[in-house]
Computed example of a mutant assay.
Amino acid sequence: MTERQSPMCSARGCRRPAVWALRWNNPKLHTPERRKIWTACDEHRTHLEEFLSLRGFLKETVSTEELVE
Score class of each variant (00 low, 15 high):
residue 1 M to Q: 02
residue 1 M to A: 05
residue 1 M to D: 03
residue 1 M to K: 10
residue 2 T to E: 15
residue 4 R to K: 12
residue 4 R to E: 07
residue 6 S to H: 11
residue 6 S to Y: 15
residue 7 P to T: 08
residue 7 P to M: 04
residue 7 P to N: 11
residue 8 M to C: 06
residue 9 C to R: 01
residue 10 S to C: 11
residue 12 R to K: 04
residue 16 R to S: 08
residue 16 R to L: 10
residue 19 V to F: 09
residue 19 V to D: 02
residue 20 W to P: 00
residue 20 W to R: 01
residue 25 N to K: 04
residue 26 N to K: 09
residue 26 N to V: 10
residue 28 K to W: 05
residue 28 K to H: 08
residue 28 K to N: 08
residue 29 L to V: 07
residue 30 H to E: 08
residue 31 T to L: 12
residue 33 E to D: 15
residue 33 E to A: 03
residue 33 E to T: 07
residue 33 E to S: 06
residue 36 K to S: 15
residue 38 W to G: 00
residue 39 T to D: 04
residue 40 A to D: 03
residue 40 A to T: 01
residue 40 A to S: 14
residue 40 A to N: 01
residue 41 C to L: 13
residue 43 E to L: 11
residue 44 H to A: 02
residue 44 H to F: 14
residue 45 R to L: 09
residue 46 T to A: 14
residue 47 H to K: 10
residue 50 E to G: 09
residue 50 E to P: 06
residue 50 E to N: 14
residue 53 S to C: 10
residue 54 L to D: 03
residue 57 F to W: 12
residue 59 K to M: 06
residue 60 E to G: 02
residue 61 T to H: 03
residue 61 T to L: 02
residue 61 T to K: 06
residue 63 S to I: 05
residue 63 S to Y: 11
residue 64 T to M: 13
residue 64 T to F: 07
residue 64 T to L: 08
residue 66 E to Q: 07
residue 69 E to M: 02
